[in-house]
Write a protein that binds this DNA or RNA. Structure first.
Lengths: 106, 106
DNA sequence: CTGTTCTATAACCATCACATTACATAAAGG
DNA sequence: CCTTTATGTAATGTGATGGTTATAGAACAG
């Protein structure tokens, strides 16, 4: 994963509204209106957040009539996790099981 | 891990200079001057980055004479990894081994 | 076509983020 | 003390970020 993409992914995750959107999309796909209803925020604000998530590759979007469905795409999360896991030797324990995980990510 | 802390950790990781600092500190502790020499950037800029990393809990700092040693503290990385791993059901494979990891993080 | 619904974009504003240079401060040594 | 070394802080410029309201556009229904 490139530094540019890590910038985008971690930057996208740095906002709690966007993390909450991802958390919701983990349960079900959703359109913009449904997501807007979850927050005390305007629809254009949500659209902007979705754009950031899309550019980071964390969601994909498809037209469904007049609506646009957002779907979680967790591959960048997996890649970012792999990056962070390079520091596993500094974690307090569980090295071996994490090593198994890392091997599986190749 | 609180939303506030996730804001700080992901925000800290969103900058590639800070990620490079963490990568270097993974090999050895270092003072500000040593870290400054690694980048084409002023010393105050590095000091600011270290402050961000410190507030996020990703490094700790100790005085060593006139110098201040920075040391990697990877616990927040572990916690942030655990957050991302909640989306493991969307990853393409390796669910079971990741589940083992998650169990071990409690 | 026209109207309705859903979403995106434009224009704007306030604040934050990241860099600079100049200067202040802390610790150690002669 | 005074100097040197190492680092932090202040002031500043600039672009990015995150929100708003108003408006434009896309898809469908009648």
């Amino acid at each position: 994963m490139s530094e540019e993409q890590l910038d985008l992914v971690f930057g996208a995750l740095a906002d709690r509204t966007r993390r909450a959107i991802l958390a919701h999309l983990a349960t079900t796909d959703a359109n913009v209106g449904e997501l807007t209803a979850l927050f005390t925020m305007s629809q254009p604000a949500i659209s902007k957040h979705l754009k950031v998530l899309e550019v980071a590759g964390l969601i994909s979007r498809t037209r469904q009539g007049t609506m646009r469905l957002s779907r979680l795409e967790a591959a960048p999360l997996r890649d970012a996790t792999a990056w962070m896991a390079d520091y596993r030797t500094y974690w307090s324990e569980s090295y071996d099981r994490l090593d198994e995980l890392l091997d599986s990510l190749d």
